[in-house]
Amino acid sequence: MSDSLECVARTSTGSRESRRLRRQGMVPAILYGHGEACVPLAAPREAVAAAVRHGSRIVELKGAVKTSALVREMQWDTFGVEPIHVDFVRVSASDRVHVKVPIDLKGECPGQRAGGIVSLVLHEIAIECTADAIPDKLHAMVGHLEVGGAIKVHDLELPKGAKLLVDADEVVVSCTKPIEKAAEAAAATAEPEVIGRKAAEEGEKAEAGE
């Protein structure tokens, strides 16, 4: 999916200028790649947020520059609510790009019904594919996952032409028995051990003895 993003060129750069831009409702951005010069840009915050909400990886930049670009990195504020910076990299539809794709569990796990815990070990997976064929999600089918079983990276169905960039034997989803916690130690320590206190006390006693 691709959204269009109206952006303007930034004449001045730096943290103070970026802060001023953010106060005006803009998000500072940078465009690079294809061996061309870096272009500092700024885009309206609502438009950037909308593109993220739609799950767009590829955006059509309009205004100051006219190109399609991949959202390489996004920086968020402390609370993860507002974007504070975006990195765009120039791509054409046939370019092969490295992206991280989230993993989605599909189906009802029989192991979970039998009392197991399904844990998603790998939340994202790095793949290489063409820019026009970046999947939104990769589905891990847990319909046949029993207790003690696991789905590995090589079990995932990749889109045509995509290549894995992680170890194929890595576990993506596992279904395990719940761990029964051992009974807590009866004699709980009231205070933690203070590093080096005993040695110091002994030293003081020896000095006092002399």
């Binding site: 402390t78 609370f79 993860g80 205070e191 933690p192 051990e193 203070v194 590093i195 080096g196």
Partner: peptide
Amino acid sequence: LMPKRVKHRKSQRGRIRGDATRGNR
């Protein structure tokens, strides 16, 4: 919960300034 080993038993109160830049995702 409590630490197993500490360097000092007591600490000064301190002030909590700014926002979390780690452990916030």
